[in-house]
Design a protein around this nucleic acid. Sequence first.
RNA 1: GGCGAGAUAGCUCAGUUGGCUAGAGCACACGGUUCAUACCCGUGGUGUCGAGGGUUCGAAUCCCCCUCUCGCUACCA
Length: 661
Amino acid sequence: MENKGKYYITTAIAYTSGKPHIGNSYEIVLADSIARFKRKEGYDVFFQTGTDEHGQKIELKAAEAGITPKEFVDDVAGTIKGLWDLMDTSYDKFIRTTDDYHEKQVQKIFKKLYDKGDIYKGAYEGLYCTPCESFWTESQLKDGKCPDCGRDVKPAKEEAYFFKMSKYADRLIEHINTHPEFIQPVSRKNEMMNNFLFPGLQDLCVSRTSFKWGIPVDFDDRHVVYVWLDALTNYITGIGYDADGNHDDMYGKNWPADLHLIGKDIIRFHTIYWPIFLMALDEPLPKQVFGHPWLLQGDGKMSKSKGNVIYADDLVEFFGVDAVRYFVLHEMPFENDGTISWELLVERINSDLANTLGNLVNRTISMSNKYFGGVVSNKGVTEAVDEDLKAVATGTLDKVLAKMETLHVADALTEIFALFKRCNKYIDETEPWVLAKDEAKADRLATVLYNLTEGIIIGASLLESFLPTTAKKIAEQLNTELRDFDQLKEFGLYPSDNKVTETPEILFARLKEDEVIEKATAMFAERAATVAPAEEAAEAENFGNSVIDIEPKEEILYDDFGKMQFQVGEIIACEEVKKSKKLLCSQVRIGSSVKQIVSGIKQHYSAEEMVGKKVMVLVNLKPATLAGIVSEGMILCAEDAEGNLALMVPEKEMPAGAEIC
RNA sequence: GGCGAGAUAGCUCAGUUGGCUAGAGCACACGGUUCAUACCCGUGGUGUCGAGGGUUCGAAUCCCCCUCUCGCUACCA
């Protein structure tokens, strides 16, 4: 196979806050299939994946578990690597952001950018808006006041490091415009341009002082490096980048990356921040960033306490590795989210893997054994019907190549299965069992079986990148080798008079939907029973007995507190604010008066369930207009790290208007 | 609210620059076949191509408007 040069592909590194579910394990399989395919195309592939192990969330989870953050991430990283291995993925490098060489380079990179002036220490004196909890740069102020609320801004107590994003914005816009392939799918390009680049990039805060579990800024160790700056650089530190220029040869060879494969939720970080960091480092930009869609669970929302979270290892236990690989690859379209459910899994496996492919291999080998003692011979007795089979078999490679070129992996699989379907049809057209009854047709029969065997091995060779184990099994059963791509345009390379296995193994057994669902239901029930008592509190991640730290605010006087009037309010009516996605407009009875209050809680409470609730209200807040509606107060809520809200309600029955003090 | 995408068979979706009786896979029904994992092959849709209007000899495909869904983003007292 000719060498086509290097191909460096990466996945996003997985966040080690917990075991990833199947939707998160999809990416590694997709990347693996692309990596294997590129290798077969003749590229010198380097495939990197790994784990992202710093951040406040991990610090909290470790504390919750009573272990150190490092112990925590060692455990989870081990689990993730185990899953990647279970899925039969052929990564060349598994990087962890706690690896010492990575941490050292991140520190050097931070210093380098600081020395260069792209990172500067927060000059926020007079520029913090307390009510908005936002920092502003001088240029963002309107008439010297907060651009959001128009109030005074004042000196910030917390210092932080910032990255001058705007400095490189024009260059990035230029790059994106001149490289239409850079952001995939293209629809994402518009989102980035319209929402971030055109309105103007704000400088990014790239350090934190509110927690410790991160890479310290070496010249100012009260700060740790922002997790995204830490995580994104894995793509270069993993292949030997050195901030001083003493790169490993691997780096010179592989950078820039050919493809960053990531989830659509982190496209912003990979197509804006990451390219800009690279520009600041004077390094070339990755050639392509593909934000793939998600594989969502169809039958109800996943929840640990319900026990119905599907993990890759569950599916492997039920169906086997290749069946799972096939499903996630096939079910995931290019641009829209895909769905996973037990019903869909059974349907896909039965119709494609068991019926079309497995049965084809099985019936072909069975006939060879039955009619010729397993010997497959090309007797050269061809008929017109053979031509189409041969044309399809030798033409599939180009079709698959074309689909893979644009990363349409699901469509590539469909092309391969079209070949297997064609083989099945060929059996029907040639009717080997009829030929077998006439001894004069023995050579024709042998030729037919030879053609079938050849068609199957061509298909299996194409399938290898996606279902490596299955492809290998087919080759073993046919007693031959899988082929390189440059041998797939020729028909007839299967050695004549070769003998296939006498005992063909069933590749994929047909499944009964109700049995699978019954088994899955039992598994979920058992898991819910064991998980619920112990982990229900911890379930909703950081709820229950976990804790949350927020940025401390300035100390206030009792007088400040005394200025605020809190009362119990009864919601007597509530309706959605049509023009908004998050706002509910409530009529709240407070004593004998009724106030109209708008709250951003539509995603957590429906208008109907709000009615009748007694809630905590800040009543003497200056009225404001939201989405065109006057709001005369504030309904108080608790909020967790994920932004979930809970209304504050009195613990005992209290009348509307009761003072909260 | 801003920007963008989409609404096509029961389900998941294809439908190039407008053109003959609108397609594929799955599911379903019927027929054929028996080598094979009750499998394979064939046949079968009167689908308002989201609603309405317009341009055109002709529109799923172009224009206008409406409804709904989704993504990103803003607001979220």
